[in-house]
Simulated assay, not measured.
Amino acid sequence: MRILSFGLIGLGAALALTSLVSPAAAVVTFDQSLASGWYQGAGTSNGHFAVDTGANGVELGLRASIRFVGPITPTGNVYFAPTGSTPPGRALWNFEFSVNPGSYEDTYSLLTITGPGGSLAFDPTQISDNKPTGGSFDQNSENLGFAFLGGPINFNPNVSGIYTFDLKLFSSEDALLGGVSIQVNAIPEPSTWAMLILGFAGIGFMAYRRKSRPAAITA
Rank of each mutant, 00 (worst) to 15 (best):
S5W: 01
F6S: 00
L8H: 00
G10A: 13
L11N: 08
S19E: 09
V27M: 11
V28H: 00
F30A: 06
Q32K: 13
W38I: 04
Y39H: 12
G43Y: 11
S45M: 10
V51T: 09
T53R: 12
A55W: 05
G57I: 08
G57N: 05
L60M: 06
G61W: 12
L62K: 03
R63A: 05
I66S: 00
T73Y: 05
P74S: 08
T75Q: 04
N77C: 04
T83M: 02
T83L: 02
W93D: 01
W93R: 00
E96T: 00
N100H: 03
S103T: 10
Y104N: 05
T107L: 01
Y108A: 00
L110D: 03
T112D: 02
P116H: 13
I127H: 03
D129M: 12
K131M: 12
K131T: 15
T133F: 09
G135N: 10
S141F: 10
S141D: 13
E142N: 13
F146C: 04
F146N: 10
F146T: 11
A147L: 15
P152S: 08
N156Y: 06
P157G: 05
S160T: 04
D166Q: 08
S172T: 06
E173R: 10
D174H: 13
A175Q: 15
A175D: 12
L177M: 04
G179H: 12
I182H: 00
N185E: 15
S191N: 06
T192C: 07
A194S: 14
M195C: 15
L198C: 14
A201C: 12
A201L: 15
G202M: 11
G204V: 15
M206D: 10
R210D: 11
K211M: 14
S212Y: 11
S212Q: 14
S212T: 15
A215P: 03
I217W: 14
A219R: 14
